[in-house]
Nucleic acid binder design. Structure first.
Lengths: 207, 207
DNA sequence: CGAATCGTTGAGCGAGGTCAAGAAAAGTGG
DNA sequence: CCACTTTTCTTGACCTCGCTCAACGATTCG
């Protein structure tokens, strides 16, 4: 059905959960702009350990760094259904592409988030890590108008959260319960409510 | 034409250990090219926890991401005496600067290293983290011709290593001893010798 | 030479991991 | 709509890797 896909008004595409948006070392034809759904970048170690190294939410580019002319070194996978718009990197020169203000800003933002996660993974407790994760997701979604009052979607499983925060799923579970009992979060059936965002931010160790 | 930066008037500067190359939120006047010496980017938490989030070795740009037009979010400090060349970001447009191939490549390399460290901090043991650190330093120095056989400089204190690897200085010490006794490293008085680089790389968990 | 800084070692502890099992959701096909 | 399977969540018991605290050498440097 490649033809059908190519026939679709040409620059949109779709991925199902667990489908690859990009594979390691395989130069992608395009940068995606995520219109809907979540995806993540990760690395799998030979013994099965997994670390998620980036989240892509609606409105994000995936990935700005491809405009620098290097192949991805980690695969990217859809977490939910994903609809995306293609921005071909081949057609326009990389020089032109990296000029796009949106792309430059996205690259800078992604770099900064990544640097923050180095601090969190290196120096923060389990509760601080999860608080950081939930705050970051909520605030990124809010900037895209995808929050509803104090609530937002949370399609990550506890195992996904574990692989982002460098913990185990069991410990994520216990920590979430601790946070629930302190009224820091209200998390049920893929839906997050944050009763007091300031309090949650404070428990994330650098506000 | 080939090297636009070469056309820029070259100002050179110097920093002593513990001197700031850049402060948080203070837009730097220039990107440095490190000619000699080491520096690091870090964040200090309010309770004194420190995480080092990047190392700058001779030949590195510090930092390529400033060409994206954002102020640094973490300070940068000299570890040793540092001699650097200034590449003014203000004079030529950012557009021109980010075109510079060397800068683009440096940015991509720094991004990739950072992503690798997310994996290491999230999922690796103490020995794997330190092995990763030592391998990375050795190989970066080797590419710059700063290794001598299996040896290279290692000005980092054990506390510095701890703050890179997300461990404590005491545990770094014990882990280094374990590595010494396994003949993975030979580390004395700021000097590192790697008897078997392949073996060290293997113990760093993703070869 | 003294004063910092850095490295080393020991004893005890605790945050988070491991293993296991069962409960609750969520998907799947009839 | 209902069985059935699979995934996710939850809880308990136990363990271990790395942390804390403290003291003492070893270097480095003024």
């Amino acid at each position: 059905m490649t033809n059908q896909l190519a026939a679709v008004p040409h620059d949109r595409t779709h991925f199902r959960p667990h489908q690859y948006l990009a594979r390691e070392a395989e130069k992608p034809a395009a940068i995606y702009r995520i219109d809907e759904g979540w995806a993540y970048r990760f690395r799998l170690l030979s013994d099965g350990r997994r670390q998620i190294t980036a989240l892509f939410l609606p409105g994000d580019y995936c990935e700005p760094q491809w405009a620098l002319g290097h192949a991805p070194t980690q695969p990217i996978m859809a977490l939910t259904n994903v609809r995306a718009t293609l921005l071909p990197v081949g057609m326009r020169s990389e020089r032109t592409l990296i000029h796009e203000r949106g792309l430059r800003n996205a690259l800078a933002a992604s770099l900064e988030r990544q640097t923050n996660w180095l601090v969190t993974l290196g120096r923060c407790t389990a509760l601080e890590r999860i608080a950081h994760l939930l705050c970051e997701i909520y605030e990124r979604l809010r900037r895209s108008g995808l929050t509803y009052g104090q609530q937002c979607a949370m399609p990550l499983t506890q195992m996904d959260m574990a692989d982002i925060t460098g913990l185990t799923a069991v410990h994520v579970n216990r920590t979430l319960q601790a946070m629930r009992s302190r009224n820091l979060i209200d998390l049920h059936s893929r839906w997050l409510r944050i009763p007091d965002l300031a309090a949650l931010r404070r428990s994330a160790c650098w506000a």
